[in-house]
Simulated assay, not measured.
Amino acid sequence: MLVLQYPLFKFLIKHLRPGAVTALGLAGVTVAFTAFGAGRTVPWVAVGCLTVVLGEILFVPSFDIWVARKVPADRLAKAMGAMHFFRSAGNMIGSLLAGILFDLALSWDVPSANWYIAALIAAGCAAICLFSGDETAAAVETAEEEREGAAA
């Protein structure tokens, strides 16, 4: 799957906006979590593993591009640093929340509920990425310059 990252990402980013590629990656994560919840046999786990890897290799670089296009150049370094900090914090907190969801799913006597809840969250994030506009940093800077010019 990793060998496919560069050519697949290059193809998709040429044809789709970064938010749509990010949404596609999150859709892969949604499918994976749903597959993990649906069954524990080899085919379900294989589908889940392949789609989660595919989703991640699309999500990470497209999200970086999406953020870079939304933030003006003078604030980009700070925004990227914050984004990576929060991504790392999310990985740590996510592990804790996954354990809590697993315990809740068992106490509810619905063993796959944790995977379905995670899939719903991923689907919601995909929808946000898909339906939000991809505003470029240049457009943001131009709008700011126009406001400053109008104020002067």
Rank of each mutant, 00 (worst) to 15 (best):
A38Q: 03
F102Q: 14
Y116F: 15
A113N: 05
L26V: 01
V53F: 11
A79P: 04
A20P: 00
R17Q: 10
A127F: 11
E56A: 08
A68Q: 13
P72R: 12
M83Q: 09
C125H: 02
D109R: 08
A32N: 05
T142Q: 11
L101F: 15
E145H: 08
F9D: 07
G55E: 04
K78L: 13
A82I: 12
V71L: 11
A68I: 01
L58G: 01
I57F: 11
F59W: 08
A46R: 03
G25S: 02
G124T: 08
C129M: 06
L104S: 05
A118S: 15
V47W: 08
M92F: 12
A113L: 15
A119L: 14
L26S: 01
L106A: 02
E141G: 10
A68S: 15
K14L: 07
A138Y: 03
V47P: 07
A20Q: 11
V67N: 04
F63H: 05
M1A: 10
E56F: 14
G25W: 09
V42Q: 11
G55C: 06
T142V: 11
L54Y: 09
A27N: 02
G149Q: 08
A79S: 15
R75Y: 11
R75P: 00
T34P: 06
L24F: 06
L54K: 01
R17H: 09
K70R: 15
A123Y: 03
E135L: 10
A38C: 02
L16Q: 04
G25V: 01
A126E: 04
R40N: 13
A98D: 14
A150T: 06
F63V: 00
A23M: 02
A77H: 10
F102E: 14
K14R: 10
S132N: 05
V60G: 00
T142H: 09
C125D: 02
F131Y: 11
G25F: 08
L50Q: 08
F33E: 10
G48R: 04
G37M: 06
T41S: 14
A32Q: 04
A35Y: 10
I128P: 05
I100S: 10
S95H: 13
H84T: 12
A46E: 05
L24N: 00
W115G: 05
G81Q: 09
G48K: 07
N114C: 14
A68R: 10
R87I: 13
K10P: 00
V52W: 11
A119C: 14
C129K: 00
M83C: 01
A127G: 08
V52M: 11
K70N: 13
G124S: 09
F86Y: 09
K70T: 09
L130E: 00
D74W: 10
C49T: 13
V71I: 13
D74V: 04
L104G: 03
Y116D: 12
A35M: 13
A68H: 08
T142W: 02
R40C: 01
A126I: 02
T51E: 04
A20G: 01
A139C: 00
A73D: 15
E144Q: 13
L101I: 04
A152N: 05
G28E: 03
D109N: 06
L54T: 08
C49Y: 09
G124V: 05
I65S: 03
E144R: 11
A82V: 12
A113I: 01
C125G: 03
L120R: 08
K70H: 13
K10L: 14
S132M: 06
A122G: 04
G90F: 10
R69H: 12
F36H: 06
I57R: 00
I13T: 03
L120H: 06
F86V: 05
I100L: 15
L26I: 01
L104E: 07
